[in-house]
Simulated assay, not measured.
Amino acid sequence: MLPEIWQGTDAGGLLVIQDSASYSGRHLLKSFINAALTREEDIHVIGFDVSEDELRNGLKESTTQRLHFHNAFTDPLGWTDHPAFTVRQFNLEEITHLVKQTSHAKAATLVIDSLSWILRHVSPSIVCKTLQQLKKGGAVRTIIGLLHADMHQRGTVGSVCHLATSVITVVPGINGDEAVAKITKRSKSGKVMQDEEIFTIKEDLTIIVQSKSSQTGLKHPHTEEQEADPAANLTFNLRLSDTEREAKEKLALPFVFSKEKKTALLHSGLGSGRILYEPDANDDYDQEDPDDDLDV
């Protein structure tokens, strides 16, 4: 699944690359940028985490003329008089203006490096609203965002990933040059597909998938342990034997009507529905004073 996403066969929507301190996703992000440039797409990078020189390092020089870097690394909070780009400019109007200034007629790819910088200084609801507006199309065709998951609360990460068309979570593999990609992909019909693949990134930033993660026998931290049996060490038995279960199934419950009783109730004969009372000899009933037995 990773090669299909990397090759842009499902271009469009929002792709979130989720990493942590144990493994950086920036190398994978640069691989996606390089693949988009090879497809002759216009790339707009809003860079908070690294400088433009560091981002361009390793990319093909013959394709970088279509790469437009918007410098948010130097002054991300706007402390100087003339900041290039700040976190407060992360809205639909500002980004659309930036993209249309330098892009051609076709929609461009927007790369956010990283979403964590913005989420640390802007309300998550505003960030999610802006991403949703950008997803609807217009000046931006595809959004690729790097998210440092261990910097935020789980609810914040979940809200951003819920908007994503695809989420790639990267964790380190067994060997030093390998990594595991845990992929969640949502189709337009709403179908959700998940996969895990072991991959490496070559010097030319191409991706090589080694194998499926399930074939390696690795135990991942998120794997749920086998649930303990709550009735294992009790002094009494909570389970029924086959004989006891059979007897229980044959037992007629008092509030369950049999077929014959249901038929009798539903198809009553003549005279049904009347109550007849015949007083016996012990009843002290006075026809002239029916309330004689009352102490009034």
Rank of each mutant, 00 (worst) to 15 (best):
V209P: 06
I126F: 03
G8F: 08
P279C: 09
T74P: 00
L119Q: 00
H27L: 11
N34V: 00
H70I: 14
E278H: 08
N233L: 08
D10C: 06
L240C: 04
K129N: 10
H220D: 04
Q18E: 15
K129V: 04
I118G: 02
T74S: 12
T96L: 00
D49H: 07
T63K: 06
K248H: 06
I112N: 03
K262L: 15
R56A: 10
T206G: 01
Q18A: 14
T109D: 01
Q133C: 01
E249I: 06
A105C: 00
T63G: 02
T169D: 11
S20A: 13
K248Y: 07
L29W: 04
L67P: 04
S125V: 07
G145P: 05
D19N: 15
L59G: 05
L238V: 10
R120E: 02
K106G: 01
G25Q: 10
A149E: 10
T63C: 03
A252P: 04
H162R: 11
S114M: 03
A149T: 08
D81H: 07
E41H: 09
L146I: 07
E4T: 13
E54Y: 05
H68N: 12
T64I: 15
S159F: 01
S211N: 12
Q65D: 14
A181N: 09
V99P: 00
R26N: 10
S51L: 03
H222N: 09
V127L: 00
Y285K: 11
R56Y: 01
T63S: 12
K219R: 12
S166L: 08
T80D: 12
P279V: 08
S116N: 00
F199T: 09
A35E: 12
Q65F: 09
E260T: 12
L115H: 02
G145F: 05
T109L: 09
E196I: 04
T200A: 09
D177R: 01
Q210V: 14
T64G: 05
L67S: 05
L77Y: 12
G190N: 12
L294S: 09
K219T: 11
L14F: 15
H68R: 12
G217Q: 03
D293N: 15
L115T: 01
I208C: 06
L294K: 14
Q89D: 13
R186P: 01
K262R: 12
T102F: 06
T102N: 08
E203A: 06
E94R: 09
L266Q: 14
L251Y: 06
H97Q: 11
G155I: 02
I168R: 11
Q153P: 00
L270S: 12
K185R: 15
F69Y: 15
L119H: 00
E227R: 10
R154K: 11
S31K: 05
S31F: 05
R186T: 15
K100Y: 00
Y285L: 15
A228F: 05
D10P: 01
A179T: 11
T102H: 10
Q133R: 05
Y23L: 15
M151D: 03
N175Q: 13
I144Y: 10
T216D: 02
L28N: 07
L294G: 06
L115Y: 02
I207G: 05
I207L: 09
V99T: 03
R245M: 13
A72R: 01
L251G: 01
